[in-house]
């Protein structure tokens, strides 16, 4: 798969920076649920801008349906931005699926202390997915189901299509 002009950095740099962000949020906010929400929100604002980079560099034409969208996220977007691919599994009604990640560059060298057991460490990813799909008129709910940091065998992110937004045009006449 060829992308146009993607520059790369060491994944360790991303992991360390992300770790610094999560640590800072835990210090500033304290409530783990609120940290999860804040990470998702930060991811959302990344997603709404990241989608432009994705469309410009990937050369992927628009997807025919949500199944194709899922494959593009798993095989193209994850590859492009995180250097890994995900598997798409557990479809339900053609509008819900799970992404399975066998490795997670954000969570390199991370161990969760017990008092943070309610933390979804990589929740930023859910926000990125929600934000970028919203820019493509797809309203989704996105959340973690499994995370090796919590003792699970793999990372599972659930994505549920809620609504396809119709672009609104203001009619002057």
């Amino acid at each position: 798969l060829a992308f146009s002009k993607i520059e790369h950095v060491n994944s360790e740099l991303l992991a360390l920076t992300y770790g610094a962000l999560v640590t800072q949020l835990l210090q500033d906010i304290e409530q783990v649920d609120e940290v999860n929400a804040k990470l998702e929100k930060i991811g959302y604002s990344i997603g709404v801008r990241l989608i432009d980079e994705f469309l410009a560099k990937s050369g992927i034409p628009s997807c025919a349906d949500f199944r194709e969208t899922a494959e593009v996220i798993a095989k193209v977007a994850f590859k492009m931005f995180l250097g890994i691919t995900a598997d798409v599994v557990n479809w339900s009604d053609n509008n819900e699926f799970s992404l399975i990640l066998t490795e997670n560059p954000l969570a390199e060298f991370v161990e969760l202390p017990e008092n943070y057991s309610g933390l979804w460490y990589s929740n930023l990813l859910c926000g990125v997915i929600r934000g970028s799909l919203e820019m493509l008129q797809m309203k989704v709910a996105c959340y973690f189901r499994r995370d090796p940091l919590r003792g699970d065998d793999v990372t599972e992110i659930r994505v549920e299509l809620k609504e396809i937004m119709i672009e609104q045009y203001v009619d002057d006449e």
Partner: peptide, 19 residues
């Protein structure tokens, strides 16, 4: 390796949050 853009976006959010 990851895309430089991923790091750049994350860095922007981290710094904006702090500033």
């Amino acid at each position: 390796e990851v895309a430089e853009a991923s790091f750049a976006f994350l860095q922007i959010e981290l710094i904006n949050y702090l500033l």
